[in-house]
Design a protein around this nucleic acid. Structure first.
Length: 447
DNA sequence: GTAGGGTTAG
């Protein structure tokens, strides 16, 4: 990993910089069957799965097609379909790369399914994958999935069993454990773990310190975070843009926005180039305080300094515009992003927009955004589905509400009581054929 | 970015 931006001037001398090799890779010829299954998966992942399982094209039974579809299915949270396809891939001895498993484990992590991640990991040997699988990267991905979902004991137990998989933990494995320890037991306990692993020859990295600095900063201990920054420099580990962003975040959350802004300019003198993430910290803080003017000014300043906004920047803008009730303005930003940057909206952006339109009671626009979201293979959270169902029902749009309900059921998400209540109320009170509709609605869930 | 390079901090 690149710890420092290339060619940084540190004030005293230039440090040698590891440059990432940028070998020009020949773009590979796209495989027609894969392109085909990808576009099929984008419109209807379940139908694409049926095609693969129905043996209608032997080219679909190779690794690229299966892994592309697995990824789409996982992204759309269609986990039962993921399981069916995995079963197929395993039983048909389709050759698999290890990266497929680490990718899926990441999805299980994000969907708060750590135990599915764990069982997938243990099933890797039953797949047709190259010797040396699971790799350390996949192992670390699993450790992270466990720690992120509060399964610290399982993570530590797994860590102790790493030799069973012929793996030797690296700095990343240790950092993940340290993250768990920080969150569960706090700074003092994590510091103890750090001392222990230092004795075992572990070399802390800039990430190690960034985690510690972030933790104390979130608790308002700005003094300790500055001490940690000095300590890392003494050890020859140099703060990067993320380190400064984390310190700036600590300052902002203690109400010291101006000091954070000053630090963003000072970091350049310390030899560290300002990056998007630093602007992101300031913009988020402005958004939280409702200072949308300053937020827009920061955006203009970034552009002036030739720092191109990315998807994270757009997420921040959309999030806080929506939170401050400027949903139409947020929608303009979403459109501008697609037109000017050619950047596709991600799950979070769609979710913020659907929630935003629900919040200002524009359920029609909310439904339109939901459709765009589903069409691009993203899956809303159940709360988003719920508020849309409630809203559509209260507007008397029972058919639309039922459509949303069905989409939700396909993804095994539970409908909250409030949404059901609104729907039932609309059906019973506002329509004559209430009883028929109600039994129709209940049939799929009771059956 | 998840086929084709891309683990941990944000």
């Amino acid at each position: 990993m690149l710890d420092r931006a290339p060619g940084i001037r540190t004030g005293l001398r230039r440090f040698p910089v590891r440059k990432r090799s940028r070998r020009k890779r020949q773009p590979k010829e796209p495989i027609p069957a894969v392109v085909d299954i990808k576009s099929a998966a984008a419109s209807d992942p379940s139908a694409a799965l049926r095609r693969i399982l129905s043996y209608d094209n032997p080219h679909l039974h190779d690794y690229p097609a299966c892994s592309a579809l697995l990824y789409r299915l996982a992204r759309a949270r269609l986990f039962p379909e993921v399981d069916s396809l995995l079963l197929f891939v395993c039983s048909q001895r389709v050759p698999c790369r290890d990266s497929l498993f680490s990718g899926l484990i990441r999805h299980f992590d994000r969907a708060s399914l750590p135990h599915k991640a764990l069982s997938l990991f243990f099933s890797i040997p039953s797949f047709n994958c190259p010797p040396g699988s699971p790799s350390l990267q996949t192992f670390n991905q699993l450790l992270d999935a466990l720690v992120n979902n509060g399964c610290d004991d399982e993570a530590e137990a797994l860590f102790d069993r790493c030799s069973e998989f012929r793996l030797l933990p690296n700095a990343i494995s240790y950092n993940i454990l340290l993250k768990g320890r920080l969150r569960r037991d706090g700074y003092i306990s994590a510091r103890k773990l750090l001392d222990e692993i230092l004795k075992r020859g572990f070399c802390p990295s800039v990430v190690t310190y960034n985690m510690l600095i972030g933790f104390v900063g979130r608790n308002g201990d700005l003094g300790i975070s500055m001490d940690l920054k000095d300590e890392m420099i003494r050890r020859g580990i140099y703060p990067n843009a993320i380190t400064y962003a984390i310190i700036m975040e600590g300052l902002c959350s203690s109400g010291k926005y101006d000091a954070a802004k000053k630090l963003m300019f000072d970091m350049e003198y310390m030899g560290c180039k300002t990056r998007l993430v630093n602007y992101g910290v300031l913009m988020s803080n402005c958004g939280r305080r409702g200072d949308l003017n300053e937020m827009n000014e920061l955006l203009a300043e970034m552009k002036k300094r030739n720092i191109k906004p990315d998807d994270v920047t757009y997420s921040i803008l959309i999030n806080y515009l929506c939170a401050n009730g400027k949903v139409d303005e947020a929608y303009k930003v979403l459109v501008e992003m697609q037109v000017k940057e050619g950047c596709k909206p991600n799950s979070a952006m769609y979710r913020m927009m659907v929630d935003g339109f629900c919040k200002i009671q524009n359920f029609e626009k909310g439904l339109a955004l939901l459709n765009a979201m589903l069409a691009s293979g993203h899956c809303p959270r159940s709360e988003t589905f719920g508020s849309l169902i409630s809203g559509l029902a209260k507007d008397g749009r029972v058919n639309d509400a039922c459509f949303v309900l069905e989409e939700m059921e396909k993804r095994m998400l539970c409908t909250c009581v409030g949404a059901w209540y609104s729907l039932v109320e609309t059906v019973c009170v506002k329509r004559d054929d209430g009883a028929d509709l109600l039994s129709g609605l209940l049939a799929p869930t009771l059956g």
